[in-house]
C-alpha cells in the first residue's frame, strides 16, 4: 500500500513539471518553427496556414504543401537582416571583451581581499542584479544624454568645450551591456580565482618570474574556466538584447533582437519574426552547447 502510494507520488513528481515544460516550452517552440514556414496574411492571427486539426491527418498533410521557405529566402535576400545578425554578434563580442577587461581586475581584487570581507564584497556584486534591468539601463540615459550628468561634469571640469554625443550611438550600447552584465562576468571569474592556490604564484616569483610573468603563466591559465563561463554568460544574452539597443542605441543601431520586435510589433509580420527567431537560435546553439558542457564539467569536478 505504502509502496504503491510512493510509486504514484514519484510518477507525479516527474510528470507535473515535465508536462508543463512540454506545453509551455517545447510546443511553443515547435509552433514558432512551423509559423516561420508560413506566409503572411492580413488576418488575425496574421499568418497562414494555421494548424488545423479539422481535416484530420490527410488535411494536415495537405497543409504541409502550403509550407514555404519564403521567409528564410527573404531574410537572406534582404541585406538588412544579415547586417543585423552580423552587427549583433560583433556588438556582443566587443562588449563581452570589454566586460572581461573591466571585470577581471575587480574579480581579482575581490579574490585577494581579506577573507573576512569577501562575503560582503560578493553580496555587493550580486545586489545590483536584484534591481530591475530596465531601471539600470534607464539610469544611464540621464548620465549619457547631451545635457546629461557626464557632459555637465566634463564641461564644468573643462575637459571638453561642447557636449559629447554618446546617446544613440554604439558606444552607448557598449556601456549599457558592460554595465548590465558585469556581475555575470565577475561571479564566475571570482569563483575561479578564489579557489586558486596562490602559493603557485609565489613559487613562480621565487623562481624568478616577474609579477606580470607569474600572472600570465600561472593565474591567467588557472582562471580560464571562469573566463569561458563569464564570457558565454555575457555573450549569449547580449546577442539577443532588445532593451539596451532600443533605449540607448536609438533608431539607427542594428541588433537582431530589436529587428525581431519591430517585425512583430510594427510590421505585424509574425512569420518573418518567427524566421528571425529561429535563425537567432541557430546562431546561439554553439555558444549555448559550449556553456552547458562547461557547466556539466564544472559540476562533475565539484562532486
Amino acid at each position: 500500500m505504502q509502496k504503491a502510494l510512493a510509486a504514484i507520488v514519484s510518477r507525479l513528481v516527474i510528470a507535473v513539471p515535465y508536462a508543463w515544460l512540454l506545453v509551455f516550452f517545447l510546443a511553443p517552440f515547435l509552433i514558432v518553427l512551423k509559423i516561420s514556414f508560413s506566409s503572411t496574411a492580413i488576418a488575425m492571427p496574421p499568418y497562414t496556414p494555421v494548424l488545423d486539426w479539422t481535416g484530420g491527418i490527410s488535411g494536415l498533410i495537405a497543409k504541409f504543401g502550403e509550407f514555404s521557405t519564403f521567409n528564410y529566402e527573404f531574410l537572406f535576400d534582404d541585406s538588412l537582416y544579415l547586417k543585423a545578425y552580423l552587427s549583433s554578434v560583433v556588438i556582443a563580442a566587443i562588449s563581452t571583451f570589454l566586460t572581461l577587461l573591466i571585470g577581471y581586475p575587480i574579480a581579482y581584487g575581490m579574490a585577494r581581499a581579506p577573507a573576512t570581507i569577501r562575503p560582503t564584497l560578493l553580496m555587493l556584486v550580486i545586489l545590483p542584479f536584484w534591481t530591475s534591468f530596465l531601471i539600470r539601463v534607464y539610469a544611464w540615459i540621464g548620465i549619457l544624454k547631451p545635457e546629461g550628468l557626464l557632459n555637465q561634469l566634463l564641461l564644468a571640469v573643462g575637459l571638453i568645450d561642447e557636449p559629447l554625443i554618446i546617446m544613440n550611438t554604439y558606444t552607448a550600447i557598449f556601456i549599457g551591456i558592460v554595465y548590465s552584465y558585469l556581475p555575470f562576468m565577475i561571479l564566475p571569474l571570482y569563483s575561479a580565482l578564489e579557489k586558486m592556490d596562490y602559493s603557485l604564484v609565489e613559487a613562480a616569483e621565487d623562481l624568478g618570474c616577474t609579477p606580470f610573468g607569474a600572472f600570465w603563466k600561472v593565474t591567467f591559465p588557472l582562471s580560464i574556466p571562469g573566463i569561458v563561463a563569464g564570457s558565454l554568460l555575457v555573450f549569449i544574452p547580449a546577442t539577443g538584447e532588445f532593451v539596451i539597443p532600443d533605449l540607448l542605441g536609438g533608431s539607427q543601431t542594428l541588433m537582431i533582437g530589436k529587428t525581431l520586435w519591430n517585425e512583430f510589433a510594427s510590421n505585424r509580420d509574425w512569420p518573418l519574426s518567427s524566421a528571425v527567431a529561429i535563425l537567432l537560435l541557430l546562431l546561439l546553439v554553439i555558444p549555448i552547447v559550449l556553456f552547458q558542457n562547461a557547466q556539466a564539467k564544472a559540476q562533475e569536478a565539484g562532486k
Binding site: V32, L51, G257, W270, A277
Partner: peptide, 23 residues
Amino acid sequence: MVFAPLVMPEVITGLSLLLLFVA
C-alpha cells in the same frame, strides 16, 4: 527543457509563448 530557458533570448521565449496562446 529545464536548462534551455535559462539561456534562451527573451525575445524568442516571448514570441513563442505568444504564438502558443494565439494558437
